[in-house]
Design a protein around this nucleic acid. Structure first.
Lengths: 246, 246
DNA sequence: CGTCGCGTTGAACCTCATCAAGACAGGTGG
DNA sequence: CCACCTGTCTTGATGAGGTTCAACGCGACG
């Protein structure tokens, strides 16, 4: 079935149950405002839909790059591993977002994508994407936009890591998650963290204890309420202020 | 003195003296292996060549995005400014590299590009790039590759900022510059830093004093020799080891 | 020659990492 | 149902790496 390192052997492949043209997440992974004809074409982009159980890797660094993956449901982290054993989270991805863009450069995936909860993704063959983008200008432009967005986001994280201190990092992390959830029609006041404190810390360049302490301090100040992985935002404005401090 | 869109009046516009097809840097900004016909087409990509005096901004955050800029000669930094006055360096760019990719996402430049020495850039109209990419698959793919490369690089910086300590950051910074200079046929043993200690620090999430101390320590250990902004690499291997530590 | 920007070095301080102990929830087995 | 275990999270005490503040060296330039 699936080659190389077999990181996918726990996954099931499904017959496409829904088409891109009918997908509620359209407009996130794909451009809006296409002709009916182009929409039909796009439906051919998806090779397969794949179920990924929690904890399983969708792709691993070094594997031959072939496809991008659009998340239908579930939540992922991507990690890079330094030469030694250490591993760092480079991103979190939710429904409607595209993973694997870093694989294009060297035709190998550069990071590892792991599901943090049972998930379902659409596999988009990169060759086909480029073929279609050749004919559909809006698709080509959309690809450029998506990649540019990732670059912008990465730069924001770099600023975070380079100059903000612990509480500000955590605050901005929460606000970023909320914003992305908001686009998907979720509450902008409550959220459930899909990842551990350690994974948050790895992403933010902090130790898990520091993340925990930061949550506690934000709670003490009345900006948020934390119960396990459930977080409620009490003062969005204040949180924004804090996130941009130092 | 430089207003909104007027960040360019300190610059001179030149009639194209050389074409892309004859440019020594071809293969960096543009794809290789095109037909003579396609090459001719590419020559039309460049709107103008612009001279940028040292210290001048090529574009600023918030300005309407229209073009990418390929560096012919010179050296740039890009910076982002947080809400308060603080400014952080998000990247350094040298001849043959492309700036402005972060502008595509929102049709506004997201960062500021400033020349660290007198420079000359080629202005590439984005609309035209997309038109040409529509007809030339290799160009389309090349664009994807370039953007993916930027993403990969940013992720590497994120790991650096998130988990390495000062000396390792500086070591990796030097090695990265050397590698990129190497591709351009420069010595892989010597380099001249085009930026201040403060700018290096800003990029690496360190204060200028820490950068200075790190240089001194690397020199003490005999890995490099530093004289002002001239750096000589004495033990590349050791430097690699140190760069991947912690 | 004096000034100015940049870089180096030292000393005190502070934030976050580290080490350690305990709390809490979920799951398993008796 | 309770006892127990495990993974995760919280909280405290201590220490290290980097920041901050300050003084000085150095080269470029007028």
């Amino acid at each position: 079935m699936l080659s190389a390192s077999g990181s996918q052997h726990a996954m099931k492949t499904l017959a496409p149950p829904t088409t891109c043209s009918r997908c509620k997440l359209r407009g996130l992974c794909l451009p809006l405002g296409l002709s009916a004809q182009d929409m039909d074409a796009l439906d051919q982009l998806v090779r397969t839909r794949i179920k990924i159980p929690r904890g399983t890797a969708l792709f691993r660094p070094g594997e031959q790059f072939k496809s991008l993956y659009a998340i239908r449901t579930g939540f992922f982290k991507t990690t890079m591993n330094g030469e030694d054993g250490d591993e760092q989270v480079t991103g979190f991805y939710m429904a409607g977002e595209l993973m694997g863009l870093d694989g294009i450069a060297r035709e190998r995936y550069h990071c590892q994508a792991v599901a943090l909860e049972d998930a379902e993704v659409c596999e988009l063959d990169m060759t086909r994407i480029e073929e279609f983008a050749q004919r559909i200008p809006a698709l080509q432009h959309h690809m450029h936009k998506l990649m540019s967005q990732e670059i912008v986001h990465d730069h924001e994280v770099m600023v975070l890591l380079g100059s903000r201190q612990a509480e500000a990092r955590v605050a901005q992390f929460l606000l970023n998650l909320l914003e992305r959830l908001g686009v998907r029609g979720q509450s902008s006041k409550e959220l459930v963290l899909r990842m551990t404190r350690e994974e948050i810390g790895s992403y933010l360049g902090l130790k898990l204890e520091t993340v925990s302490r930061s949550f506690s301090k934000l709670a003490q100040q009345g900006l948020i309420a934390v119960k396990q992985r459930n977080v409620e935002i009490l003062q969005t404005e204040q949180l924004h202020v804090l996130a941009n401090l130092h």
